[in-house]
């Protein structure tokens, strides 16, 4: 009985932590548990959350993606530049193209996928650590975004902004997109051969290869997925504020995304990841952010607490997911 209880606790620890946090925050500040505040919370975390689903796939295969924020900036700038008014004096592109929003978004996502394909191919075929490959990609993409436009890409068309700032039935589109991505991520991980292959690669890539899994092809797909999530994040970021500043857009978002995936139990030793866990991770960090701001806690204190939670969650995770020697 005690073993079963222990197992239940360790399997659901993260949700218990989240519930405890929500209760504490609700008691500490009566403005916390209001519809409008919770909407603000979700809207604030949705973009990082989408990127967390991206990077979780990479972490699952013992990788990482540090280029998410920079890819978001590049995609936000490029797709945003395609939807500026033609008569706008501060236009980024001098020629008079103005595409409908879906076309501009599609181009942005394709750009993201292409970047991911390159990163993935480098990681798969040169076998350099993902940390290095994506660190390089981060610098390159951020610089490329700044070269593309040395000032914010602004005055984006209303239809482009719909995804980032529109509402359907009172629910922010950005939250709806987040939920859709969560469902897609869950479906991929649980119900597709691709998802299963990622667990195998993360658990033991040599054994996965011997079992007939095309490790390289799957790794490329992982980073395409990562960059695709970053690109979507970039579109949403630009849409949310109506402009995209290549030098600050998405800055450090990859770190928040990695933190959320990690707190959500995605193991950096590979082979362990659940979408529900990642959702809980996103919400835990979101509740802390939002709740402490409401309580007027100093920003630095908030970050110290977040740091402790991230480290603590990995300590717990390491104890739970030991690869036995």
């Amino acid at each position: 009985m005690s073993i079963q209880r222990k197992k239940f606790l360790s399997d659901n620890m993260i949700w218990l932590v989240l519930i405890a946090l929500v209760i504490i925050m609700s008691i500490a500040n009566r403005n916390f548990a209001t519809v409008s505040n919770l909407t603000t919370l979700l809207t604030g975390e949705a973009i990082k959350g989408i990127m967390a689903f991206g990077v979780a796939f990479a972490i699952l295969t013992k990788g990482i993606d540090l280029s998410l924020g920079a890819v978001a900036a590049l995609v936000g700038a490029v797709s945003g530049a395609l939807v500026q008014p033609t008569d706008f004096a501060m236009r980024t592109l001098s020629s008079g193209v103005r595409l409908p929003a879906p076309a501009a978004i599609l181009i942005g996502l394709l750009l993201g996928a292409a970047i991911g394909g390159c990163i993935g191919a480098i990681i798969a075929y040169t076998e350099i650590p993902a940390f290095i490959a994506t660190l390089g990609a981060q610098l390159i993409c951020r610089a490329a975004a700044k070269m593309f436009s040395n000032r914010p890409v602004s005055k984006l068309s209303d239809d482009y902004r719909f995804l980032g700032s529109g509402r359907v039935l009172g629910i922010p589109m950005i939250v709806i997109v987040f939920i859709i991505i969560a469902v897609i991520s869950w479906f991929i991980l649980v119900h597709t051969r691709f998802g299963k292959s990622l667990y195998a690669i993360g658990a033991n890539s040599q054994a996965a290869r011997v079992a007939g899994i095309n490790v390289n092809a799957n790794l490329i797909k992982v980073y395409v997925w990562c960059s695709l999530m970053a690109a979507l994040g970039g579109v949403l970021l630009a849409g949310r504020s109506g402009s995209s500043d290549p030098s600050t857009s998405g800055l450090n978002y990859e770190l928040d995304a990695i933190a959320a995936a990690t707190v959500g139990g995605t193991s950096h030793t590979g082979g362990v990841c659940s979408v529900t866990g990642v959702i809980a991770g996103i919400l835990i960090l979101g509740v802390i952010n939002n709740g402490l701001v409401l309580m007027g806690v100093d920003d630095n204190m908030t970050n110290i607490l977040k740091g402790i939670i991230i480290i603590g969650s990995v300590v717990l995770d390491m104890r739970k997911n030991i690869k036995k020697v």
Partner: peptide, 21 residues
């Protein structure tokens, strides 16, 4: 251990992994 088992994954996963398609 080196290129056979997927240690942290389940018996079920280990059984079906070569036959996913």
């Amino acid at each position: 251990r080196g290129n056979g088992i997927l240690g942290i994954l389940s018996v079920k996963f280990n059984t079906v992994v070569a036959n996913l398609k």
